[in-house]
Amino acid sequence: VNVKKLKVSELKEELKKRRLSDKGLKAELMERLQAALDDEE
């Protein structure tokens, strides 16, 4: 998943799939999702 190419709605969906908070600004969502993806690898 390329975090930078996702829309806010898509970021929120990806975060929900991982049971993460989907609250906050786009930058925060991107950071949170990227951290989750880094952990998965």
Rank of each mutant, 00 (worst) to 15 (best):
M30S: 05
L11N: 01
S21P: 11
E40W: 01
E10V: 06
A36P: 03
K16C: 08
K23T: 15
A35N: 07
K4R: 12
E31M: 15
E31H: 14
E31F: 10
D22P: 12
K16R: 14
L33W: 00
K26H: 11
K17R: 13
L6W: 05
K26G: 08
R19S: 13
A36Y: 06
K5W: 05
L11Y: 02
Q34G: 10
K7I: 04
M30E: 11
L20T: 02
A35H: 10
V1S: 15
E14Q: 09
L6S: 01
L20H: 04
R19N: 15
D39R: 12
A36H: 03
G24Q: 03
E40D: 09
D38W: 04
S21H: 05
A27E: 14
Q34M: 06
D39P: 07
E41I: 07
V3G: 04
A27F: 02
A27I: 11
E13S: 12
K7E: 15
G24N: 00
K26R: 14
R18C: 02
S21L: 05
K12R: 14
L37G: 07
L25P: 15
E10R: 04
K5N: 15
E28D: 11
D38R: 11
K12P: 01
A35I: 08
A35W: 05
V1D: 02
A27S: 12
L20A: 03
L15W: 00
K23N: 15
E31K: 15
K16V: 14
L6G: 01
D22F: 09
K5P: 04
S9H: 06
K12L: 10
E31P: 12
L15V: 01
L25K: 15
K5G: 12
V8T: 11
E28W: 00
R19T: 13
E40H: 06
L20W: 00
L37D: 01
L37A: 07
S9M: 08
K26E: 15
L20F: 00
K23P: 03
M30K: 08
R18S: 03
L11R: 00
L15Q: 03
E10Y: 01
A35M: 09
L11E: 02
L6M: 13
K5V: 11
A36T: 08
S21M: 02
D22M: 05
K7N: 07
E13P: 00
N2I: 06
R18H: 00
L33I: 01
K26T: 14
M30Q: 05
K26Q: 15
D39Y: 14
V1F: 12
Q34P: 06
K26P: 15
K16A: 14
R19C: 06
M30P: 04
A36E: 06
E28G: 04
S9C: 11
L20V: 04
E40S: 09
L29I: 03
S9F: 01
K16E: 10
L25M: 14
K16W: 04
A36F: 10
L25V: 14
L6Y: 06
A27K: 15
D39N: 08
E28S: 07
L29Q: 14
L15F: 00
L33V: 06
D38N: 04
E40A: 09
V8C: 06
N2A: 10
N2M: 12
R18W: 00
L29N: 04
E10C: 05
G24R: 00
A36V: 06
G24L: 00
L15H: 00
R19Q: 13
E40I: 15
A35V: 09
K4Q: 14
K23Y: 06
D22T: 14
K26A: 13
L37R: 08
R18G: 02
K7L: 13
D38M: 11
E31S: 10
E10L: 04
E40C: 04
L6R: 00
K5Y: 11
E28F: 00
N2D: 13
K4N: 10
Q34I: 06
E14K: 00
L20Y: 05
L37N: 04
K7H: 12
K17P: 01
L25D: 15
R18M: 03
L29P: 12
E40L: 01
Q34V: 05
D22S: 12
K17G: 06
S21C: 07
K7W: 04
L33G: 08
S9E: 14
K12D: 03
L6A: 06
K4A: 13
L29K: 08
L11M: 11
D38F: 06
Q34A: 11
K26I: 08
V1H: 00
L33Q: 11
Q34Y: 02
S9A: 10
E14H: 05
R18T: 02
K5S: 13
L11T: 00
E13Q: 13
N2H: 13
A35F: 04
K5D: 09
Q34S: 11
D39Q: 13
R19W: 05
E41C: 15
K23F: 13
R18D: 04
E31W: 09
K4Y: 07
L37E: 13
V3P: 11
A35G: 13
E31G: 14
L11V: 08
G24F: 01
R18I: 03
D39H: 07
L33E: 09
K17E: 05
V1E: 02
R19P: 03
L6D: 01
K7Y: 12
E10M: 04
D39S: 12
V1A: 04
K17Q: 12
K17F: 03
E31T: 15
E40V: 04
L37I: 09
Q34F: 05
M30D: 03
L6V: 04
E13H: 08
E40R: 06
K17V: 10
